[in-house]
Write a protein that binds this DNA or RNA. Structure first.
Ligand SMILES: [Mn+2]
Ligand SMILES: [Mn+2]
Ligand SMILES: [Mn+2]
Ligand SMILES: [Mn+2]
Lengths: 220, 220
DNA sequence: AAAAATAATAAGGAAAACCTAACAATATAA
DNA sequence: TTATATTGTTAGGTTTTCCTTATTATTTTT
């Protein structure tokens, strides 16, 4: 298995563990990687032999500590590049994910650390996701999904947890829902979870699905 | 043929056309790419079918206009990254080649142009090699190999044409022979072309082979 | 609890990019 | 100018990663 292929599989497993829970199913991986389920089965056996994942046939797959460390290394490089592309090159936060995804696999440890230093060791990427530190440690999770916020309470948006869907991010930008924005929940529809949000002067509603990607920290 | 593989072959053909003349021989490619001559033969046939090269069996290979444009695009990206790595991240000019070589293949046109703008549209890389402009045009060649410089004449080093060999570059750095340095040729041995150079206060000799990589522009 | 539907794996095969070994062409030397 | 050495290509294989088409396991429905 080539390094590139291993990295693609491990990253996707991590993303799906967070999105759909662990263990991750073969079919989910096949869908996201756009390969056949048969190919995934085959690859998971090999990744398992390499000690990167725990794989139980017909059940699913999860990362081992070794696999997780590998992914954290890539995540650090990915998010550092996002910061550079966004802050220094002026590429919109909606677009940086894909570009960083290409660069991360071809970045040496030396370049990664020099880049971190150049950027002032940022703690989060343009989407508000934490950047693993030099030793690949992450801070305690602090934000909460906006659905947990009480109506009438002010809060700050800290993170958008779907970084891949650039159309979603453009949509949110149009609503003023971006990391750092001060907002207030006006109403939560008990029927289907649609949330009405005041951002700046404008009041807009978002579906429960979109809301699930918005993390906030209540104002004190 | 994967994009990555095509790019490796085309770049190497271009480098060898400059170093050893055109057409490039199968054996040269095999040596530089560290694959067997048989593999090269096979690949050249495929590149030829794609219209990237002109290939005459038993004779050699050269780039078509299409292949050349592809290489110029990569060269632009490569050298822009070198400038960034050297000037902004502080990575030595001796080391930037390899790092840039990894990044260049995973850089979109958008990132390349934003990067060029961020860097102030530099004309040359840290080794003094010209950076193709946005339309992939290169300036007229202006420097001359140091062997062509008359004894006693002052000149400025404009370029080191071997960017890959980091040991060579470290050696030259130790001698003060770096792009931008003011130097003077003290003596040229007619026997084997060894050249004695004054750089700053120090006077050092370099072999004809090393000298062949040093380009200068005579002081006016 | 059996039948049907869904999901996952196994078997067998293809394409890309490499290899070695045999053969062919070209260059060099006798 | 023939013999020898070098260089290059072709033939036949291997490995990796993907595929399609069974077959098997699990889940859902009746
Ligand atoms: Mn990636
Ligand atoms: Mn991000
Ligand atoms: Mn390269
Ligand atoms: Mn350079």
């Amino acid at each position: 298995m080539s390094r590139q292929t291993i990295e693609e599989y491990l990253e996707t497993i991590k993303t799906l563990e967070e999105m759909e829970g662990s263990p991750v199913r073969t079919s989910s991986l096949a869908r996201v990687l756009t390969v056949s389920p048969a190919s995934v089965s085959e690859m998971l056996q090999r990744l398992s032999e390499k000690g990167m994942v725990r794989y139980t046939p017909y059940s699913g797959v999860s990362l081992t500590e070794k696999g997780l460390q590998q992914v954290l290394k890539l995540t650090r490089r990915h998010r550092l590049w996002e910061v550079f592309l966004n802050r220094h090159l002026g590429i919109g936060w909606e677009e940086v994910y894909d570009e960083a995804c290409n660069l991360e696999h071809n970045t040496s440890g030396m370049v990664a650390e020099k880049l971190a230093n150049y950027l002032g060791n940022p703690a989060v990427c343009p989407h508000g996701s934490p950047i693993p530190d030099e030793n690949l440690r992450l801070p305690e999770k602090s934000g909460t999904p906006i659905a947990n916020l009480e109506t009438g309470k002010k809060a700050k948006i800290t993170r958008i947890t779907n970084e891949i869907n650039s159309e979603l991010l453009h949509y949110l930008t149009g609503l003023g829902i971006v990391p750092g924005a001060e907002i207030e929940v006006i109403e939560k529809a008990s029927f289907d979870g649609t949330i009405t949000i005041k951002a700046g002067e404008s009041i807009k509603a978002v579906s429960a699905e979109v809301a699930s990607f918005i993390e906030v920290e209540p104002a004190n």
